[in-house]
Write a protein that binds this DNA or RNA. Structure first.
Lengths: 116, 116
DNA sequence: CGGTATCCATAGGGATACTG
DNA sequence: CAGTATCCCTATGGATACCG
């Protein structure tokens, strides 16, 4: 947040935007938490998150797989099952999520305290 | 990222979503950085950020003011000037932005290295 | 179960023009 | 300069139905 010239600003911004592109969507963190909590299959994840439609879940899962946040495994059998798991890589988001979480807590306090 | 039951998950998620609602938009961090860098008036901010339209800037600035991230000051004179400044409060986002930034850097590396 | 396909409504964003 | 207002268009998301 120090003074910087414009080029530095843009340079500083790109990685932040990259991260937000990965986790900033409306559903991604919710889905990640759901999966990390043990919901491994499509319907369970869907049901665990209010207002989340199959279409959106489907597309978000694909993106998250591309981003190496989750793994999709098809298990042959009767019936065929599909399992989603959080990758080790997704755990590198721990600090990020912790900061987002803490700031959110404080912000909520702030908003309630001073409504000026 | 540990195992949690569903209620805990949702509870953990709310503050994260709160934070993302504040800074997760497409433009807000860009605008905040621009202002923090010394761009104080509307046109300067607008010009400093490629692809940002007046309409969007206008609405984002209002929201950011409500969220106490920036301050808007009208300075009477000829012509009337308006000054936007980053609040002290916005500086509490320092750690959040640092984490987002660092993760973004690493993620970009990861994406380049293993394109599997 | 694990999705895809389709239809449709709505919001958000670009371009432009205009006000004070 | 500092925005608002308008028009218009596209992308996103909900609802529903359907396939393997």
């Amino acid at each position: 947040m120090e003074k910087k010239d414009h080029k530095d600003c843009l340079a500083a911004l790109v990685p932040v935007r990259d991260t937000l592109d990965v986790i900033g969507g409306k559903w991604r963190i919710l889905i990640l938490i759901s999966i990390s909590s043990g919901n491994k299959n499509f319907r369970k994840i869907e049901r665990s998150i209010p207002k989340l439609s199959t279409k959106v879940l489907s597309s978000e899962l694909k993106i998250m797989e591309q981003d190496h946040l989750i793994t999709r495994t098809v298990i042959n059998g009767f019936p065929v099952r599909t399992e989603y798991t959080a990758t080790e890589y997704s755990k590198t988001l721990k600090n990020v999520i912790a900061e987002l979480h803490d700031w959110g807590i404080n912000h909520r306090k702030k908003v309630f305290e001073c409504s000026e």
